[in-house]
Design a protein around this nucleic acid. Structure first.
Length: 272
DNA sequence: ACGAGCGCCTGTCGGC
DNA sequence: TGCCGACAGGCGCTCG
């Protein structure tokens, strides 16, 4: 489920609690259980189990699509990839079929990483920049001005769709929000970055921020069988709407493959 | 520098 | 009903 709005929703929930679930701030990790070893990218299992025990969660934040849990001695960083999710649940619940690891707090609660497709990864590292250091700017960063974004787009010569999904260019967009932003900005996904005018670049940045804001307000999108969180899927303009009318001009939405990913756009609103 | 192909995984859905 | 391919919110790798 993870693009910026879904990850942001999960981070807020872990930080603030939701419904009957507590905030994890200040929780002491009594011990961890790893059920699928490949979910742990670093360090080796033994070292991880030993070093995570007895540490206290001091903060929880998001960088791009990564979740950064700050502990006293180091960072626990999680990437949900395609199907990962984090559940706060009582220890009395039987572990789910797709649980890959769990942090036990010894107070009746645990944090479980549920990930049917097993693509998700977690790292425990002293320096968070060893994992997050190559990420591009945050879309809402105030220093990312229209002018800076124009320069970034003109610094390379790439199709907009794969470029916007490149996390070293901009951190947080995935397949859904890229398609949605390009439609809102009325830009064809195959347009080449350094051909955009200043006005088009400014419009694209504004569109990216708008769709991400909408996604966060709706608490993310829930599609398929993963992530039953928000309802942004009810408001998709183009994503997974092949053949359905464009919300602006009613022309049927088209689907092509770009950068190995299905790409949805309106052939009238988003001309080459 | 850039894009395409593929691998990693499990699950769902539509067609036959 | 069962089988089979296509497809799914990501990303790292190789190969042209």
């Amino acid at each position: 489920m993870p693009e910026l709005p879904e990850v942001e929703t999960i981070v807020r929930f872990l930080r603030e609690g939701r419904d009957d679930k507590p905030s994890l701030y200040g929780f002491r990790i009594e011990k961890a259980t790893v059920l699928w070893e490949r979910s742990l990218a670093f360090p080796k299992l033994e070292e991880f189990l030993q070093n995570i025990s007895d540490q206290i969660i001091t903060s929880i934040s998001r960088r791009g699509k990564f979740i950064r849990v700050e502990l006293q001695n180091n960072y626990f960083i999680i990437h949900l990839r395609m199907s990962g999710d984090l559940w706060v649940e009582p220890e009395t619940t039987p572990p789910g079929l797709h649980h890959r690891w769990m942090l036990h707090f010894g107070n009746g609660w645990r944090l479980a990483f549920n990930d049917p497709r097993k693509f998700g990864r977690a790292w425990m590292v002293a320096d968070d920049q060893s994992i997050l250091g190559n990420l591009g700017p945050e879309p809402f960063d105030k220093t990312l001005t229209a002018d800076a974004f124009f320069k970034q787009l003109h610094h390379c010569r790439r199709q907009l769709k794969p470029l916007l999904m490149d996390q070293t260019f901009l951190a947080g967009l995935g397949n859904i929000y890229t398609d949605e932003a390009l439609h809102l900005a009325k830009l064809h996904p195959m347009l080449v970055s350094n051909n955009l005018s200043e006005a088009q670049c400014a419009k694209l940045l504004a569109a990216i921020r708008q769709v991400l804001r909408e996604g966060i307000v709706r608490q993310g999108a829930s599609i398929d069988w993963v992530y039953r969180g928000g309802d942004f899927q009810k408001y998709f303009r183009v994503y997974q709407r092949t053949g359905k009318p464009c919300p602006v001009c009613t022309t049927p939405i088209e689907r092509i493959t770009l950068g190995q990913r299905s790409t949805h756009f309106c052939p009238i609103c988003q001309k080459m």
